[in-house]
Amino acid sequence: MVRHYLDFERPLMEMEREYEELQRFAHRDDPRVLARIKKLQNRIAKVRKEIYSQLTPWQKTQLSRHIDRPHTLDYIHLVFEDFMELHGDRGFMDDPAMIGGLARLEGETVVVVGHQKGRDVKEMSYRNFGMPHPEGYRKALRIMQLGAGFRKPIITMIDTPGAYPGVGAEERGQAEAIAHNLREMATILTPIIGVVIGEGGSGGALAIGVGDRILMMENAIYSVISPEGCAAILWRDGAKGPLAAEALRLTASDLLKLGVIDEVIPEPLGGAHCDYQAAAAKLKEALLRHLEELRDVPEERLLPERYQKFRRMGAFMEE
């Protein structure tokens, strides 16, 4: 597989390429080659650690959008068994930017919905870059309500630049679809866990992000507006994205401090894309733990607690 490097990963690129070439073509029994490989390994590990232990918000933004990053379907296949995808909003169409269905998690039936991005040009365009139309949100709600009817817990995976800004999307009620989900998710009588796995882009992300627990992968972001969009409006310069990323407080650790999310799920060094298995294992562990906790919440307390969770969010003073 060809690895894609972000600009701040450049120092790694040369070394990793050399390392791979030595592995592939050099005579392994040559002690000089062996020494070189060993040296490179150490150096790579050191540089990796340096780079990834102090990522800036902008670098995390880039990482959250990394083309090799595991997407919803990747996690579904690694975390769950027997995934059965369901389709359509029963009104207008099936939106490939939002997927959903039934699956088993350690034997228990759960509902999974999530944004879906693509990895190559063809799939990206098929998935509309993970930007749903109103039908995507309506499908997600339909599948969640289907699950709730059978008392199945719901897991949502958030990974979108935002809801699609297009003529058809507006005509068919993009805003209404999102609003409707926000209100209805507050009343779905079954445990809901939302996980921001990559890009949590504004209302289009929140529209499947109302639940009893909101978790976030370590290098995911969650923001009211994209850094570029914010920069274009407030700095009148879209290239000031890095500055806006800093100002918006959009990293997982920021959101934990602001009380918006419940837990940060650690990623393998270098980001989730460096080791899908490890990232998925951490996610699975967190999901199982939170589901276990939520199972103990009596039904009559579930919705009031979910309401209070969001009711408390905000900062103001009162004179």
Binding site: L182, R183, G203, Y222, S223, V224, L248, D254, Y307
Partner: peptide, 23 residues
């Protein structure tokens, strides 16, 4: 729309107000 200067907290007001309306 949402007040960008309050970051993610402004986004959460969408969830908060919609949840209130469910009451």
């Amino acid at each position: 729309g949402a007040r960008m200067q309050e970051g993610i907290l402004s986004l959460m007001q969408m969830a908060k107000t919609s949840a209130a309306l469910s009451l």
